[in-house]
């Protein structure tokens, strides 16, 4: 592992609870942290550990486990290393502390996540304003339970006249129609 990451993680471990440390590359590490500690951790990373470049905020929907995984990717532009902080939050009434005060663009990410996943970030500017969608009246579309194909078929008039045959079924109908299992 990269020495910078090692040092950083060691210094973090004394203050924060780190789980599932997974090294993906020499310069990229994934760490799971507790929801409550995340914002103070990000602040610490920015101010003391020189991880000043906020790369992105992403979310992964683990619908099976009933959680959203928030991934905060931080970058140390001097030492060229990345640490990704994963933070699991409940899917039901998902809500997370806002980090908009740390980096300016975080507010945009949070707006998007509210719209696309329904994750609330209380206090984040304009977070409840529509960002990408307009006139959306269904559940947030990026949630996994939302079926985009069905929605599209119901809404957007697919052109009729398309039917495809499965070679296997077709051959069965043609060659041995009476065989049934």
């Amino acid at each position: 592992m990269n020495t910078t990451i090692e040092e950083t993680l060691t210094s973090l471990e004394s203050r924060f609870e780190l789980k599932d440390i997974k090294q993906q590359r020499g310069d990229l590490v994934f760490v799971t942290v507790k929801k409550e500690q995340l914002i103070s951790l990000l602040t610490h990373m920015r101010d003391n550990e020189n991880f000043t470049h906020f790369v992105m905020l992403s979310v992964v929907d683990w619908i099976e486990d009933g959680v959203f995984q928030l991934s905060y990717i931080l970058n140390n532009p001097e030492k060229h290393v990345d640490i990704v902080f994963r933070c699991m939050i409940e899917r039901e009434n998902a809500s997370m502390e806002s980090a908009h005060h740390l980096w300016k663009q975080v507010a945009t990410y949070q707006r998007e996540l509210y719209e696309m996943y329904g994750i609330d970030f209380p206090g984040s500017p304009r977070v409840h304003e529509s960002f990408i969608l307009e006139g959306w009246d269904d559940i947030p579309p990026m949630r996994r339970e939302f079926d985009t194909k069905k929605y599209s078929e119901d809404t957007y008039f697919p052109r009729p006249g398309r039917e495809s045959k499965d070679p296997k079924e077709h051959m069965k109908n043609k060659l041995y129609p009476d065989a049934d299992k």
Binding site: Q24, V55, M56, V60, D82, V84
Partner: peptide, 20 residues
């Protein structure tokens, strides 16, 4: 199973993909 972040330099700046 796994996740990664890949970046490259586009003409606009850092272009990254977070893939899970």
């Amino acid at each position: 199973k796994g996740e990664t972040y890949i970046r490259s330099e586009s003409s606009r700046g850092e272009y990254g993909y977070y893939v899970v």
